[in-house]
Nucleic acid binder design. Structure first.
Lengths: 333, 333
DNA sequence: TTGTAAGCGTTATCAC
DNA sequence: GTGATAACGCTTACAA
């Protein structure tokens, strides 16, 4: 069996209280320090975090709940979180809500019941009452990527509006007017924001918006493919298309390839989220990229502050910049 | 404060023992069942897993340690693991070893000290003494993707040899002889296996192996780019190139694009691991794809069996098939 | 079946 | 500073 604090105390000939205090950084006499150190070494003693948790009600564990684990966006963020929290001794539990609000709720309940010290959520769905309902306001939590209704929590977001604005504006200055947009579900925050960026350019430039050129997908490769195909089949197809997330960008490119459309000669295209794509595809794709690692890092830092009891200006919303990177997939009309 | 089992016992007017037994599935009289259920409901009682862990020495948590979190391979596997273990009530802690053996060791120590019930490792480096050293043989562990020396553990692997064999053989039947290979570090298991597949074809077909056409990268995009560029600059460049992992495939494609090489007219190319690529790139890339989700699922299942104490034919090695998917990136010479 | 009580390995509150 | 000791919330003999 593993050695306990009692064994250490016995071997060092001090009380368990003294050992515990030493372990927790309180003052202990030099002599005892030495004796305890020696005993710990000889017994290869490791403090039992479970027992500690029982007393302190701190598990040194946080949970990250995302709509899907197997995509670059989630994982880059999780990597950022893990890396940041590692230094403080926290471990990170990952939960896949599978874009299902019910599942999200049960996962949240699950980790709460497991006594995690905090949770960071990339919420699925538009409404977040179930989040507050489960988490209460005891358990520190921070939202990322998306805001949801009826939730008062810290959040780390990306300035989608401006990033998209920039990209679409560029198309306009290149002379495009029929600009298609493949965006996400109407009830998802980021989709709304990205659409807002698109619309704002048109308004600012005094151009009419053709609602027929705004198509709503569900952020999957399939709908990206489908909606891009729809555009291609239009009597008067758009001269440029902006796709509002990564998976749909993939689908859209597949459609473009299948239709044999030449980019950028027959169609200007702007994608989302993966710089890699820009380098892989010929001609290089223009993309809006989000600072994924930074999202994770900021969310982790925020959560850490809250877990330490720092309640300064709650709820706080951090907005990170996304960037438009121009490749050779767009051209002047 | 949250209700405890004592509160439930008091309200239901039974002993804590009875409540505990009921909670753990032992027989309890119908009357008491009802009374306890009622009390649990009224108090919104949740069993405290920390206290339970302290008694049972089971944390219902497993750790997954990978060389990098933010890549498709790791993520897909982790998703598979999380999904599979979820049904049994386990949560999954993720750890990034950053391809650093020291870090891997300390992460392993960290999760062991946290009393996880099991760990699945995608080991970094070629030697695994530090793994056994830290884990001992108490803590169930399963390896995945790679085998390492001096470690006797269950493992879930992919049949790299045959998958690569198939791909390279196809090139040979198409008439190629000067087939370049961009492979991984000499000390990494999968790289060795993939190279073995390549060599075996040549041997089986009685063809000479040109060592100059086998280049060793380190599984990063950068070396994929660099090594492919080297091939392009050769006086007599290969007519076909096989790239042995995903990141290097990306790099290789970037180099090809940059050199303006026409695929497959000037060069036949086979990549690795991402079916997506095959659909995205024009002409569609031929690839060897691994069953990632299945790796995770199998690893999880194995670990679960071990955690339950099932020690049948330990150590067990499961080998999954990878598949060669032919696209339009290779042509008859 | 049920109640009682002794832990599990810590931390924290006392007196000293 | 230090030692004794009572929790923390649960599981599990043991007895009844």
């Amino acid at each position: 069996m593993a050695a306990t604090i009692k064994d250490v105390a016995a071997l060092a000939q001090v009380s368990v209280g003294t050992v515990s205090r030493y372990l927790n950084g309180y003052e202990v006499s030099e002599t005892n320090k030495r004796k305890i150190d020696e005993a710990i070494r000889r017994l290869d003693f490791k403090l039992n975090p479970v027992a500690r948790s029982l007393k302190t009600s701190k598990s040194m564990t946080v949970a990250v709940v995302v709509p899907a684990l197997a995509n670059i966006f989630s994982m880059s963020i999780i990597e950022g979180i893990e890396r940041h929290l590692d230094q403080y001794g926290y471990s990170v539990i990952v939960c896949d809500s599978q874009s299902d609000v019910q599942k999200e709720k049960s996962k949240l309940q699950f980790v709460k019941d497991k006594y995690v010290d905090g949770v960071v959520i990339m919420p699925t769905g538009s409404d977040g009452t179930h989040i507050t309902e489960v988490l209460g306001d005891e358990l520190p939590a921070v939202l990322m990527d998306r805001l949801v209704e009826d939730v008062k929590l810290d959040a780390v977001l990306v300035d989608n509006v401006n990033a998209v604005y920039q990209a679409v504006e560029r198309l306009i200055t290149l002379g495009h007017r029929r600009i298609g947009m493949i965006t996400g579900p109407k009830d998802i925050y980021t989709a709304k924001e990205r659409q807002e960026g698109y619309r704002r350019v048109f308004v600012d430039y005094n151009l009419p918006i053709d609602e027929n050129l705004i198509r709503y997908g569900d952020y999957t490769e399939d709908t990206g493919y489908k909606l891009m195909s729809e555009f291609m089949r239009l009597d008067c197809p758009p001269t440029a298309v902006f796709v509002a997330n990564y998976e749909m960008t993939i689908g859209a490119i597949m459609a473009v390839n299948e239709f044999g459309i030449q980019i950028p000669d027959q169609l200007s295209l702007i994608g989302f989220d993966q710089l890699e794509l820009s380098k892989l595809i010929k001609p290089s794709l223009s993309v809006v990229v989000q600072p994924m690692a930074e999202i994770g890092q900021k969310a982790a830092e925020m959560l850490y502050q809250r877990m330490r009891g720092n309640c300064d200006n709650f709820p706080q919303v951090i907005r990170l910049k996304a960037h438009f990177i121009e490749g050779q997939s767009i051209k002047r009309l």
